[in-house]
Design a protein around this nucleic acid. Structure first.
Length: 424
RNA sequence: GGACAGGUGGCUGAGUGGUUGAAGGCACUCGACUCGAAAUCGAGCGUACCCUCUAAAGGUACCGUGGGUUCGACUCCCACCCUGUCCGCCA
């Protein structure tokens, strides 16, 4: 969420920066300003009335304690009370309207973010490794995986419908191995604290990390009172761990690594990437979350990307790093790098990680602050990145390490997690 | 699910209709004492918003949350949430 006061001070800056996103959100600034004007006018009026009431009420108390007659001021304050009630009502309406709009305005992008209108305009930062060479035509993962009995997509459809996966035998084992491997790597080598959080969260948490109110249709909702949401990413429960907190400076930086399944309705994407495991409604992911001071958030973003890249390097996979442009970047992100791994079977780059700096956008929504050395309360900066998302990593491994005889080689780092196996 | 107890500042803990933003204690900051430290003494020390020369001073709100009664609510009434203890049920 953006700071209304800053918008008030420099509306043109916000209009111009939001216009870069090409989403039409710059037009909302005018609405915010009108409501803000109305709000402050009534607020001042209301506070003056309350001040008068407080003062007079004390006088009434003094008169009564001396046994005097206070009927005149009492009657007068009754009228003032009615006015206050009316203004309170109006203020509540305006404030709700204003925050409804503010919650739907995306974040301002960092200066280094390329300006563009679509994924075409994303900037390729670097390409690491090379495309694997084959003496045969590389096959897609659904063929390899089904043939080796690692996945059963028909069974998944029977149980839950399209967009779900059943892993079997060594496939299930590989999935579990990857989760363990990723958590071990990040906790022992990159200094993350492992956390295991609920998979169902309340609406407040979704609003804190900015999935709500705008993206309700992307999520699975459980009809409770109040409703619960299936997490679309561990970012939600993990970042919200410190919602409504005032952290002491020595607590920062905080680094969490968490495994969760992720549930996504992916509305509107029907027909795209529907084969195999590329786009599914439920998938596993290990997520990395940082809570830091504003001074260090951009340096941290580079470190975070490095942690995600390390996985692909260690597993010997070919990948590239993109800096998302203003037209493609996510709602809450100020800056975002995507990691795409090469999948030779399907012949495509697949997004396996998205590493973002939200600056104070999420912290403001969840009121997450820390006390700095001067004793001032400052909103923290939050970041998160996948480290990594599993099905697509699974795809890349199957397709990259497929052999002519139909088997798959296991990269060295994963072997201890698969009972020492070199091949599936 | 049932019964009881309780939710007050960074922590602890008073406060049952009117100078209570909130006693006392702890912690913290500054100062005095000291060669230095401890102890002791003195002073200070919540958050958000509005206003504003992002000065000083002021104003408003906040004692789990949301309503209600009242000129006035931490204090009275209603609903809800959470925590603890005991009982029941259960992986």
């Amino acid at each position: 969420m953006l700071d209304v006061r800053k918008i008030r001070e420099n509306p043109d800056f916000y209009r111009e920066r939001l216009a870069r996103r090409n989403s039409g959100d710059d037009l909302l600034i005018a609405q915010v300003l009108v409501l803000d004007e109305q709000r402050r006018k009534r607020l001042q009026e209301n506070e003056a009335l309350k001040s008068e009431r407080n003062r007079t009420s004390k006088e009434i108390g003094a008169i009564k304690s001396k046994g005097g007659d206070a009927s005149e001021p009492t009657a007068r304050m009754k009228l003032v009370g009615d006015q206050i009630a009316k203004l309170d009502q109006e203020l509540a309406t305006i404030e709700t309207e204003q925050s409804d709009i503010l919650l739907r305005i995306p974040n301002i992008n960092h200066d280094s973010v390329p300006v563009g209108t679509s994924a075409e305009d994303n900037r390729i930062e670097r390409v690491v490794g090379e495309k694997a060479e084959f003496t045969f035509k590389p096959r897609p993962h659904w063929e390899i995986g089904t043939e080796l009995g690692l996945i059963d997509l028909e069974a998944a459809t029977k149980i839950s419908g399209s967009g779900f996966i059943v892993f079997k035998g060594l496939g299930a084992r590989l999935e579990r191995a990857l989760i363990s491997y990723l958590l071990d790597l990040h906790t022992t080598h990159h200094g993350y604290t492992e956390v295991s959080t609920p998979f169902l969260v309340r609406g407040e948490s979704m609003q804190g990390t900015s999935q709500l109110p705008k993206f309700a249709e992307d999520m699975y909702r459980v009809e409770e009172a109040p409703p619960l949401y299936l997490v679309p990413t561990a970012e939600v429960p993990v970042t919200n761990l410190h919602r409504e907190e005032l952290l002491s400076a020595d607590k920062l930086p905080i680094r969490y690594a968490a495994y969760t399944p992720c549930f996504r309705r992916e509305a509107g994407s029907a027909g795209k990437d529907t084969r195999g495991l590329i786009r599914v409604h439920q998938f596993d992911k290990v997520e990395l979350v940082h809570i830091v001071t504003p001074e260090e958030s951009y340096a941290t973003l580079e470190v975070l990307v490095g942690h995600a890249e390390r996985v692909l390097q260690d597993l010997g996979l070919h990948y590239r790093v993109l800096s998302l442009c203003t037209g493609d970047i996510g709602f809450g992100a100020a800056k975002c790098y995507d990691l795409e791994v090469w999948a030779p079977g399907v012949g495509a780059w697949l997004e396996v990680s998205s590493c973002s700096n939200f600056e104070d956008f999420q912290a403001r929504r969840m009121n997450l602050r820390y006390k700095n050395s001067e004793g001032k309360n400052i909103f923290c900066h939050t970041l998160n990145g996948s480290g990594l998302a599993l099905p697509r990593l699974f795809i890349a491994l199957l397709e990259t390490y497929q052999q002519a005889d139909g088997h798959i080689l296991i990269p060295e780092p994963l072997r201890p997690y698969l009972g020492g196996r070199k091949e599936i």
